[in-house]
Design a protein around this nucleic acid. Structure first.
Length: 152
DNA sequence: GCCAACGTTGGC
DNA sequence: GCCAACGTTGGC
């Protein structure tokens, strides 16, 4: 079992939206490093911290489970989609989605500020300056500590 | 809204 | 393959 952090802008798709939908395709990842993680490293059953970026404040707001393995991202082929990729074709579509299912909303969000202020979380990608990757692996001990912070 | 950091594109 | 220009991300 591996642990992940998935970024989303709440104005686009929030954890509450996921709670309402129950599950959703995590579409629109358009970075090759993130794509490789979705496609090659994620496994059904893995847990993911859901992180609200471009929010006030930004931070981890809850938990989701990877419930479906990587499939081609249909949004890449739709000209009317915000995630359209003019170079993608049905035969050569480099982008994938995974299915993500709602697990829980933290009673208390763990703000980025808190993550940064916690010395034991220093190694987390999300706390590093300039770290823009929208799909990030999370160390088990970091994952556990974030849960503790959310429940403290 | 600003802008630093970063990834991608495309001319050469 | 280099690298300048450009577009995007995302904290502030």
């Amino acid at each position: 079992m591996r642990y992940w952090l998935l970024k989303t802008e709440p104005t686009t798709y929030s954890l509450r939206d996921l709670a309402r939908d129950g599950r959703t395709d995590w579409e629109g990842v358009r970075n090759y490093q993130a794509r490789n993680l979705l496609r090659d490293e994620m496994q059904v059953g893995d847990l993911a911290l859901i992180y609200h970026s471009n929010a006030t404040p930004p931070g981890v707001v809850g938990l989701a489970r990877i419930s479906g393995g990587a499939r081609p991202d249909p949004h890449a082929l739709r000209p009317d989609s915000r995630y359209f990729d003019r170079k993608a074709t049905a035969e050569r579509n480099p982008w994938v989605v995974v299915e993500v299912s709602f697990v829980e909303e933290f009673r208390k969000m763990v703000a980025l500020e808190t993550l940064k202020a916690t010395p034991a979380l220093e190694g987390m990608y999300v706390t590093r300056r300039g770290m823009r990757l929208s799909v990030q692996p999370v160390e088990p001990e970091h994952f556990e500590l974030v849960l503790q912070l959310a429940r403290s």
